[in-house]
Structure formats: structure tokens, C-alpha cells
Nucleic acid binder design. Sequence first.
RNA 1: GCGCCAGUAGCUCAGUGGAUUAGAGCGUCGCCCUGCGGAGGCGAAGGUCGCAGGUUCGAGUCCUGCCUGGCGCGCCA
Length: 575
Amino acid sequence: MIRDQIRQIVTDATANAQSAGHLPSIKFPPIEIQRPNQPEHGDYSSNVALLASSAIRKSSGQKANPRQIAQSIVDHIETGELVGGVELAGPGFINFRLHESWLQKNLLSVIEQGADFGAIDRGNGQRWQVEYVSANPTGPLHYGGGRNAVLGDTLANVLEAAGYEVQREFYVNDGGSQIQLFIESLYVCYLQLCEEMGGAPKRDVERPEGAYQGAYMQDYARVVRERVGDRLAHLEPAEAKEGLREIGREIVVTDIKDELATVGVTFDRWFSEKSLYDEGLVDRLLNDLSDRGEVIKRDGALWFLASKYPGNEKDEVVVRSNGAPTYFASDIAYHYDKFFRRKFDQVINVWAVDHQGHIPRMGAVMRALDLDPERLRILLYNLVKLIRDGQEVKMSKRSGDFLTVREVVEEVGPDAVRFMLLTTSPESSIEFDMSLAVQSKNENRVFYVQYGHARICSLLQRAAQNGHKNPEAVPEDAAEIVKLLTDPAEMTLIRRMLEMEEQIELAVERLSPHNLTYYAEDLTKTFSVFYENCQVLHTDVPPQLARARLLLVLAARTALSRVLNLMGMSAPEAM
RNA sequence: GCGCCAGUAGCUCAGUGGAUUAGAGCGUCGCCCUGCGGAGGCGAAGGUCGCAGGUUCGAGUCCUGCCUGGCGCGCCA
């Protein structure tokens, strides 16, 4: 990466200045390379001299002029072909300007890398898992779940681009009380339906407390009846519910799967919580932990002693006094499975903030299992507030009052949904105004980016019509003709494109890919400026320059479609 | 009460401890088509970065306290 190369140059120069006796031989602070806000300050800059100055003062008590330190470092810099200019500026910054010929040459690497443009090998093939959405299988996904889906999916994309081997997983909570309640609710709906259709005996079955009662439950009941007819209605309730379990789970999981597919989100694996009980892993682990004093019996219940571990004040019930395990019990088994059986190097769970209290407990679980807690990271995101007619609408799956992902996708399309959910940083809450979203669906910012891409495609098409032979290929003399690209708009566009690696690294480092939306807009904007300022296919443009600009346009298409694809959005050729 | 997160332009939001002017989109007000897609480009107005201290050569960014809002502190998930 460019930044790393600059850092190396500074590191070497500092070491050389020290061994030449021009700088004191103290340990220098880690060298940071920044991107200046203002273009006049170069492409990269380092404040090493300023940091060194205070380090020297602290260690020796002597004053050290940062500008002099910077000058000593600058004197020892060997620029190579990457750096075209080094300046000392302000109180002691060292500014670097990339070499024009280096930029021109690397334009071609954008085209060569194609769909993999910007890939870095930070991950080194490590096995990472991203577990996301994992919504209760009790109904359609509400819009907040969509945020989880888009964050997790985009993060997984970016991790893959950064060289990690990524597995995408949805944890199906089919082992606890919520699915039980769902099945019982579904049973009531199914019975009612069968009665109405006149095919079943009347049964006096009460709707359970807190039942799921959204309109979608009726739809599910209809699907059940289409599959099995009235058969289950003739059975005794206990037996009927048992029969409904599998089919009910299957229907709702399929529904969620289809709904996620509408925003382009798919998973490598749908992991069943229930399977952890069925194979006995939960019991086995609780026994093991009990033998090791991590789990004890108290007040008739079984407790995990979380309070032994930092960040935890309370212990956690794993088996209630009535003998029913809590979801926390299966969560222990689930994470055991992730690390010991499937051997992921790193696991990232994407959770909404209302699960934040669970984070320290999971840290305790990691320690109790003798795992490095750092290997489990939680990407926490804030909630989506739904505003309708200026009022906040409380979304509740049980009451059935909520906005689904599917509804919004139908209104504004999948790309716009993803973009909206991706522009804010995860820790900010989103206020989503339904009426505004629908009104302004054609003003969604993603269309600006896609429009830029479509315009590029049409430009390349027109080039072919105008007699440019195969404008999508790199000619043999490419290395020569790119030297004709010297206009500021052209150079700025190249610079922006070559930021791709840094943008990918940034998203991975912070586990928050929202910077990509801003990068995509910036890239598009830079292209638009080039487009306004530099004609490509006009008769006034010398033929060689036109060919060079076509290469630039081709690279821009590569970069734009890459960033759109990373965000899971389409890169249309026309719109 | 304790913990986590947020508070930046009229609205929705970016902002990685640095350089006289803190950014974007939308909205408002001006320009720019006898030239490749105007779903575009250029410009203007609009800010005591919640408040008060502190650290630093330098703070929207770090520390402390406070205010406001959200979320969490279950033998729920």
C-alpha cells in the first residue's frame, strides 16, 4: 500500500539521519502517515518531527526545533519512483507528493486488476466468520434488521477484499421460548383458518399470552394448510404443535431467506440453535464447565459465574429452576463450536445496541473456555427509528406493527435501501422517514454514483462507434500514452482511484464499511469534474490524448463498479 | 442509581490529535448546454461543532464534570 511505502521511506530516512548523527539516537514514536485535508499540502504528510520534538524534550529536557528535525529527515529521504516531491511545511510537517509518472503508470494497474481492484492481503487467508442478522425466526424482518443485514454483508465483502476467508452465518434461534411462542401462535391461527374453511372440529384453544398476531401469521397459517390440509387440526393440541414445529420453522426461515435476498444478502450457513441441544453439546459443555467450577447450582437454578471475569457484575442463569435452559446456555455451546470445532481465527457478531449488555458476558464465556476474548468482536449498531407522519412508530413484531425490509425495497429498490442503511456510522441511530424516503427515491445518492457509471459505459460505447478500436482493451503502447494525462482533473481522478486500498483497509480496521458510500460519491464527483473539463471524443482532441483519456475512463469504470459491488449494489450500464 | 452510544449548517448525516477558510447531500438563491447522458458542473448564503473546565505548540476529535435524547442493567431473546 502507498501509505506503507511512504511510512517506510520516512522510517529509513529517520534511521539514516540518526546513524549520521544528525538526530539524537532516542527511540522515535511510531511514524504516522496522514492524508492532508488540503491538496496544497500534498498527497501524504507526516508529523513525525513534531512528535519527535516533544519526545526529545521529554527524554533529555532539551528543546528541539521540530522544523530542524524535519529538515534532517528530509535531507536523508530517498524518494524512489513513488514520490515526486517532498516539502517541509508549517511547524514541521513533511509533505509528500506522488510522482506524476508513478500515478500515470498505476492507472493501468487499476484496469489490470479489474473486478479485484483494491484487494489487499491484510487477512493472509485467515478464517473469519461474520454472524449477522440472526433475527428470531418468528416473522418477517423489520427494517432495523435490514440495517444489520446490510452492515454484516458489506463488512463480509470488504473482509474478502482484504484477504480474509470469510464465512457468512445466520444463527437460527429455533431452540428457545420465542420459537415456542411462535409455534403456539401459529397453531391458533391455523386452527381458526381450518374452522373457517369448515374442515375441522371446533377446539377451545386460547391464544397464548403475548402471542404473535401480525397479519403475516395468517399468511403463514394458509401456507401450512396448503401443505398439510386440515390434518393437524384433528390431532390433540400437543401432538399437533409437535407436527407444526418443523413446518412452521421451515416456512418462516424460508420467508426470511427470501426477504434477505431482496437486498442481495445471502448466507453460507444457517446454523440451528436446536441442533446444539439435539446433539447434546449444551449438556456436555455445562457439565465440563461445572467440573471446572465455572458453573454452579444455586437457588435451584444453574448459574454461569460470569462475575469472576472483568466487566461483569452479575452471574448468569444457564438452566432455570424449572429445568429449561436459557438462550445463554446454547450461546456458550454455539461459540465453543465456532472456535474449537470450526476453528475460526476471528468471529464478528453483528448486534443491535439493545444487546450491548450481553457483550461482557460473552467476554467471560471466552475466558472460561480458555479463548482469547479478542477473537470475538461485536459490531454494535444503533437502532432504526421509524417516522411516519412526523411521529415515531414503535416497531413490534408481536403486535405486527412494523415496517419490513421487503416493503421498503418494493418502494425504493434494493440499492437505495442498502445505500441509505450504509451512509451512517453504525453507532449513530437512524431516523427513517417513510414518506420522505418514498418521495425522494429518485434522489437517493446511490443513483448519482450509478449514473456516473452508466455515463462511463455509454461513453465507451460511443467511442467504439466513433472508430476507436476496442476501447475496453489496453493497447500495447498504453505505458507511453498515459503520459499524456497531465490535466489536474485527470490527475485528481487517478489519485482518488488509487485510494481504493486505503478505503478497504479503513473499513476493515474499524469494522464499519460506511466510509465506502462517501468514497463512492467522491469518486463519482471526481469523475464528473473530469468529464466536464476534459473532452474525450471531440474532434478537437488529439487522437493520442483521446486514447489516453479512454484508458482513464476505463479505469474509472473499474473503480466505480468495484466500490458499488463491495457495497452489494449494482453497477448499471444504462439507467 | 450505574453502564454504553449520540448531540456538528434549516433538515439528514460525514469528519483518522494537527497547517489562517469545519465538509457532503437535500432545501434556499445565483450562474453554465451550436461539445461525449443536465440524474451533471460552478458559485453564494447558512456553524459560538450541546455547555463548562482541563491537557497540548495545536482540540469537533483526548481527559473531567454537567445538560439533553436513545439503549441496556430479568430464572426474556
